[in-house]
Amino acid sequence: MDLRIFTEPQQGASYDTLLTVAKATEDLGFDAFFRSDHYLRMGDADGLPGPTDAWITLAGLARETRRIRLGTLMTAGTFRLPGVLAIQVAQVDQMSGGRVELGLGAGWFEEEHKAYGIPFPKEKFARLEEQLEIVTGLWATRTGETFDFHGRYYDLTESPALPKPAQSRIPVLIGGHGATRTPRLAARYADEFNMPFASVEDSERQFGRVRAAAEEAGRRADDLTYSNALVVCVGRDDREVARRAAAIGREVDELKANGLAGSPAEVVDRIGRYAAIGSRRIYLQILDLDDLDHLELIAGQVQSQLR
């Protein structure tokens, strides 16, 4: 089981804070550092000092880390034109020496679009499908050849399809709870399917839909990696668990029901239940980015038991 660190900087984090967490992620032996792609805080957080851009952040981290994978859960398709996104991600992949992964979703948080003047179209999912075809098509076009796409929402003519990523193929992540269109898109474009904030039972059902869609599309179901994203709150004892839950404004019982919470042994057992239904990677949502002791505890007493 791979453990990856997943952050939500829109809740309040500077680049320097994210750099500190990313370096701890690398030093402690985690597989990757991922971040959300949002511009507005959610819930009761004040959001200070303000948002950071996902791909500018990852470009910086690409030059200041050496081993960990870097990516987004999920880049919002509403934020960037697909041709521009393909250039940005390929450049960051070059900057990292080939360590980038792209999670791409339709975009859903209407309030942040209103707050920053970003169009919020009704037909987001149909646009996402064209975006995936364009981004992956640009990267796959041979050097010296051109790429054309004439869709309903986007039109590209004789694109040189440059720059090229450092990797021969940047892994693409698609995720979500949708029962029909999401599995179909994952089967066509994804290297990894991610189920966010879901129970073991719901994850198993959705993985089954994706596996069936992959086979229907002519792919082996096991060609995809299946993963989960879950909030994590680990403590050496009940008091420490309660303190960490309070720091992120959550209740312990709720976290145990809907995430990974409790003692290291409890969390290892919970992760084992996800592994049993085919999950091979867990994105640990870290909500208190100043609590580096939390990362050390997870590395020393959870991750060490999963290798």
Score class of each variant (00 low, 15 high):
296 E>P: 10
8 E>K: 10
245 A>D: 02
205 R>G: 09
19 L>K: 04
65 T>I: 03
264 P>Y: 09
40 L>K: 03
145 E>N: 13
189 Y>C: 07
89 V>N: 02
68 I>Q: 03
49 P>G: 09
57 T>W: 01
6 F>P: 02
58 L>T: 03
108 W>E: 05
286 I>C: 10
223 D>M: 10
101 E>F: 02
307 R>W: 13
119 P>V: 08
76 A>M: 00
20 T>V: 11
260 L>N: 12
131 Q>L: 08
221 A>L: 07
245 A>Q: 00
273 R>Q: 15
262 G>T: 09
169 R>G: 14
22 A>S: 12
281 R>L: 08
303 Q>N: 14
247 A>C: 14
172 V>P: 02
194 N>G: 05
174 I>T: 11
4 R>E: 13
214 A>G: 05
282 I>T: 14
88 Q>E: 15
136 T>H: 00
294 H>W: 10
162 L>A: 12
216 E>G: 08
226 Y>T: 01
172 V>T: 13
161 A>C: 09
225 T>Q: 08
177 H>E: 15
21 V>C: 05
306 L>E: 11
305 Q>D: 08
162 L>C: 08
23 K>Y: 08
248 I>N: 04
90 A>N: 11
97 G>C: 02
222 D>L: 03
177 H>D: 15
62 A>M: 04
249 G>K: 03
111 E>T: 15
27 D>C: 10
11 Q>V: 08
57 T>S: 13
248 I>M: 09
228 N>G: 12
186 A>N: 03
295 L>P: 07
242 A>D: 14
79 F>C: 06
281 R>N: 05
271 I>F: 01
8 E>C: 06
249 G>E: 07
98 G>E: 09
24 A>K: 12
60 G>D: 01
35 R>I: 15
302 V>Q: 02
186 A>D: 03
101 E>T: 02
293 D>C: 12
288 D>R: 10
186 A>P: 04
177 H>P: 09
164 K>R: 10
72 T>V: 04
244 R>T: 09
300 G>P: 03
212 A>R: 13
270 R>T: 07
256 K>P: 13
87 I>H: 12
8 E>N: 14
151 G>C: 10
75 T>V: 04
149 F>L: 08
2 D>P: 04
252 V>F: 02
94 Q>C: 09
47 G>L: 00
17 T>W: 06
102 L>E: 02
81 L>E: 08
83 G>Y: 00
186 A>W: 00
25 T>K: 05
22 A>L: 07
101 E>C: 00
100 V>E: 01
59 A>N: 07
256 K>N: 10
305 Q>A: 13
191 D>R: 04
280 R>C: 04
117 G>Q: 01
69 R>T: 05
161 A>S: 15
107 G>K: 00
62 A>G: 05
64 E>W: 01
134 I>L: 13
67 R>Q: 08
198 A>M: 07
242 A>S: 14
204 E>D: 15
238 D>S: 14
282 I>G: 00
233 C>F: 04
105 G>T: 05
254 E>V: 14
